[in-house]
Amino acid sequence: MQASLAEAESLVLKAAVGVGLEPGLASLSARATRWLCQYGLPGARLVVRALTHWLERRSVGVKWTGERKLCAVMENQMVSALYAGAVVIDHRSLVPTPMTVASPDEPLLLLAMVAHAIGDGSVKLTWPDPSGNRQGLQVDNDGCTFLGEGYRPLHRSGVLDLCFTCDWNPPEVTGSVLWNDAALVHRQKSVYQNGVEIGRADLLFLHQWGAKTLIPDSDISREKGAGAGRIDTD
């Protein structure tokens, strides 16, 4: 389905609330989805995966190990980006940089949550290159690799150095630099022109989860609202 950004955000918000995520975290996830989608990135797919991990308890909340490293509250589990994003944002001025998140389940979603939420402030994201030749951000997403060059700010100014670490072998770099202003602006224009593609399977999940926020009609409720259920020939 070709959706608008507002629809993508709204679908995710309702789905996240529907599966039981706290409203504050759900709105953070929804806005991150919109942020990703407006740059042509698969925000809906990422959040569906993150919600699935969380529902199936393959990803869990976070705890501090040391003063600047976040890891999963349960051993051998991934960190849920849905929770880690909020914790990173809230601690951005409290924890010495670089802050580290170990094994996030959806790094790109985590990135978006942080970048969007601190949009009025500043964010720099770094991703340690195993070769040590350069630093940047590299996220594998369904076989497509996004690479951000070292310390290029996602928003215009920067004070926070956020370092994602990965406990599994980082994928090979296959993409090109995505995070540059011209490419982002071009993608944004394209999204406004054409809408956002949300895949059928993701849409199904979002609708199913979102439906959990709805309540069936009752006789009492039918008698409320504009028109009050009457035929009206005003």
């Binding site: 409203p23 439906a211 959990k212 926020t213 709805l214 309540i215 069936p216 009609d217 009752s218 009492i220 409720s221 409320k224 609202g225």
Partner: peptide
């Protein structure tokens, strides 16, 4: 406050008389 299944229209429910309080809007 909740969203009804009927076109997702916001509604007011009576807490003591109607089901679904666990799904109330914030």
């Amino acid at each position: 406050w909740y969203y009804s299944e009927d076109k997702m229209e916001p509604r007011l429910g009576l807490r003591d008389n109607e089901a679904g309080t666990e799904r109330e809007m914030p």
